[in-house]
């Protein structure tokens, strides 16, 4: 195994048979290509964002990388191992954090979950003590160790989960939506920790997220997946160029009734749906005068401003490339 091909996917496929209801008992079978021929490599020590809309095939890829699912086709190696065949061996070398499912023990103090990891992963005592100390300090867990997990907040629990995934010194860390539902402070703390982990320990990190800020602050490299295919693989800056429209922000206005698209300087109508209209305007421009102008000449009921997110980047990408 060469460090440059630490994670290696070659034309990886995952096809599901889906049974759809067709009448009371009858089911129709159809094929869903959740992952449809993806190839990439990740070098040891890289930190990669893996993004895409819901149902794009992100989780399926992660599940194959961790050995939970067996690929239907293609080749896959993580640290030189075939994940689905050598699942338990691989488990010793990877850490996984599922954003919405805790692996911590609900009724027991946080510390007990770490004790279990200590024995389950057969971590040498000295190593365990050292890693514990580090995680406790950097993730700010000292006050929480004796608290039953069910009493922790979402952000505290996520920090606890991240620590649990790292005590055995994994070479790769997979994070599935690590900041979902967290408050701003917790998000910042988690990001800072991951950055340090990658920089100091050289842990390879692969994370899926909906939050563009996660990517901006953590990953030099981004992969975009949709419909099971890799749409983009490269630097984040490049993604911005591809989706240059992302330098626009979005104003969603609800009018009293259905009206023709709003005609206003600086503003570009993206979509009209009944009385609701989506208006794009340059990020640099201030929203206030635009809102005032709309309110002056249109019957405005409600409005909201949306910052650019992953979905917008991807939507824009498609529009520019004319894919699909």
């Amino acid at each position: 195994m060469v460090d440059a091909d630490f994670i290696e996917l070659d034309n990886l496929e995952k096809v599901f048979d889906v049974r759809r209801k067709a009448g009371f008992w009858r089911r129709e079978k159809s094929e869903v290509r959740a992952v449809d021929g993806i190839s990439f490599t990740v070098a040891r020590g890289e930190m990669v964002g893996y993004i895409g809309p819901n149902g794009a095939g992100k989780s399926t890829t992660i599940k194959m990388l961790t050995g939970i699912l067996t690929p239907s086709g293609g080749r896959l190696r993580v640290a030189g191992l075939d994940p689905s065949r050598e699942r338990t061996k691989l488990a010793q070398r990877i850490g996984v954090v599922f954003g919405q499912r805790t692996t911590l023990w609900w009724d027991l103090p946080l510390r007990d979950s770490y004790r279990l990891a200590h024995r389950m992963y057969r971590i040498p005592d000295a190593r365990f003590a050292e890693n514990m100390e580090r995680c406790v300090e950097l993730l700010d867990l000292a006050e929480l160790l004796e608290v039953p997990v069910r009493q922790l907040s979402l952000g505290q629990r996520m920090r606890g989960d991240i620590a649990a995934a790292l005590l055995h010194d994994p070479e790769v860390l997979y994070l599935d939506e690590p900041t979902i539902g967290l408050d701003v402070v917790s998000k910042a703390k988690v990001r800072e920790f991951l950055r340090d982990l990658n920089a100091e320990r050289g842990t390879t990190v692969l994370l899926t997220t909906h939050d563009l800020q996660d990517i901006e602050q953590l990953c030099k490299r981004v992969m975009v997946i949709d419909h099971g295919r890799l749409m983009y693989d490269g630097a984040l800056t490049g993604l911005h160029e591809v989706g240059s429209g992302v330098s626009e922000r979005m104003l969603v206005v609800d009018l009293e009734r259905e009206l023709p698209p709003i005609d206003l300087e600086l503003v570009r109508v993206v979509k009209v749906e009944g009385p609701r209209q989506w208006l794009a305007f340059p990020s640099a421009a201030s929203a206030a005068p635009i809102v005032a102008a709309i309110a002056a000449s249109y019957p405005l009921v409600d409005l909201s401003v949306r910052e650019p997110d992953i979905e917008a980047v991807i939507a824009k990408m498609y529009a520019d490339r004319g894919v699909y």
């Binding site: 488990a91 996984v96 389950m120």
Partner: peptide, 11 residues
């Protein structure tokens, strides 16, 4: 989906 959390343990 919690079966997945068992599948990533080395046991």
């Amino acid at each position: 989906g919690t079966l997945d959390t068992l599948l990533v343990r080395p046991a």
